[in-house]
């Protein structure tokens, strides 16, 4: 199933949840809507499912306009953040529900449900009740249940949001493998950037009801299109720099030359792991002093004061930090290997 969304809009009283959203999802593609809470990503998903109706815009599935088609006829599988399993039904009955309401014979639907239970790795749990399962197991049942009526499109609304970090990671790689196997067109909504970057063929970053950027995960991370994307996906140092003699400066740091008027205000984002830190001075390295060290496991986060009012964060592999003998108060030399510059409209 491929989807084409055109100029979708949805207001809730005076709040604009979705503001002119357009995008496409190709057959078998795994696309993620990534954004903070309230960015409208879940509403987009609910509009596609037919659980909400848009104020304007078109939703096309396989070239057919389904914007006004009722939810029952859209052939989508929907997985909710809090599972939404039917508490009074056994696991098997939960999975078979979509087939039951379509009038599929009991023996056929139970065989299908068992097959799906096997697919999600929970064979043998068919007679259990939802309350007897762990959160991770419940979400896998919810997925099996959504797959039972053989939807053409799978919609996942923060499916791992209610689980702890370790389990979330586990289910993530499990879901990726499952998608590679069944190749079902999938649209995932999440606020977790790691989830989005790891799982998707394409990521749509949403903010305030709009799509800020639509690109492959690598491009989202390496070439953020807007300041919002730069700040939301991955950690950054955000500094407000000025242009002098066609060059962008922030304190002692220089970020290259641009054809913009002198005195223009620009915002520069650079990631802590794009800061190179050395203990010896070299070419174009700016001097600074380590003001704090935070141990993060594989890396150490250093706060380096370049001069008064100019402090940056750098992430250094723990091994490198130990080898270089970084300690509080040590003088180091830094250079920023990659940065993203955003021009604001006003001038200083």
């Amino acid at each position: 199933m491929n989807i084409k969304i055109e100029h979708l809009r949805k207001n809730f009283s005076d709040f604009t949840a979705v503001n002119d959203v357009s995008f496409t999802v190709s057959e078998s593609e795994f696309v993620t809507l990534l954004g903070p809470s309230g960015s409208g990503k879940s509403t987009v998903l609910r509009l596609i499912a037919g659980l909400e109706s848009p104020d304007s815009g078109i939703i096309e599935v396989n070239g057919e306009d389904v914007t006004r088609i009722p939810v029952q006829e859209r052939k989508v599988g929907f997985v909710f953040q809090h599972y939404a399993l039917f508490r009074h039904m056994s696991i098997l009955d939960n999975i078979a529900f979509g087939l039951k309401v379509r009038g599929v014979k009991r023996s056929v639907r139970e065989a299908k449900a068992k097959e799906l239970l096997h697919l999600v790795g929970l064979s043998g749990l068919d007679r259990r009740m939802p309350t007897q399962l762990s959160g991770g197991q419940r979400q896998r049942v919810a997925l099996a249940r959504a797959l039972a009526p053989e939807p053409g499109l799978l919609l996942l609304d923060e499916p791992f949001g209610a689980l702890d970090a370790r389990l979330r990671k586990e289910l993530r790689s499990w879901l990726k493998k499952l998608h590679e196997r069944i190749k079902l067109t999938t649209l995932l909504v999440t606020h977790d950037q790691e989830e989005a970057l790891e799982l998707s063929d394409k990521v749509l970053v949403m903010n305030q009801g709009r799509i800020e950027q639509e690109a492959a995960p690598q491009a989202i991370f390496d070439k953020p299109a807007t300041e919002f994307v730069a700040a939301f996906v991955g950690e950054t140092n955000r500094v407000e720099a000025i242009v002098q003699d066609g060059e962008v400066y922030w304190g002692p740091l220089r970020f290259g030359s641009y054809y913009v008027p002198d005195g223009s205000k620009v915002t520069v984002h650079f990631r802590p792991n794009d800061v190179y830190v050395a203990s010896q001075p070299g070419e174009a390295h700016t001097a600074g002093v380590i003001r704090s060290i935070l141990f993060l496991g594989a890396t150490e986060s250093l706060e380096i004061e370049l001069d008064k009012g100019h402090t940056i964060t750098a992430h250094v592999p723990t091994g490198v930090a130990a080898q270089s003998g970084f300690h509080l108060g040590k003088e180091v030399y830094v250079s920023v290997t990659r940065s993203h510059i955003f021009f604001s409209l006003g001038s200083a």
Partner: peptide
């Protein structure tokens, strides 16, 4: 949630 899950699976209002 449970009602919405049911309708996405094809259940009508009465079901």
């Amino acid at each position: 949630d449970q009602e919405e899950a049911a309708v996405t699976m094809g259940a009508n209002g009465w079901q």
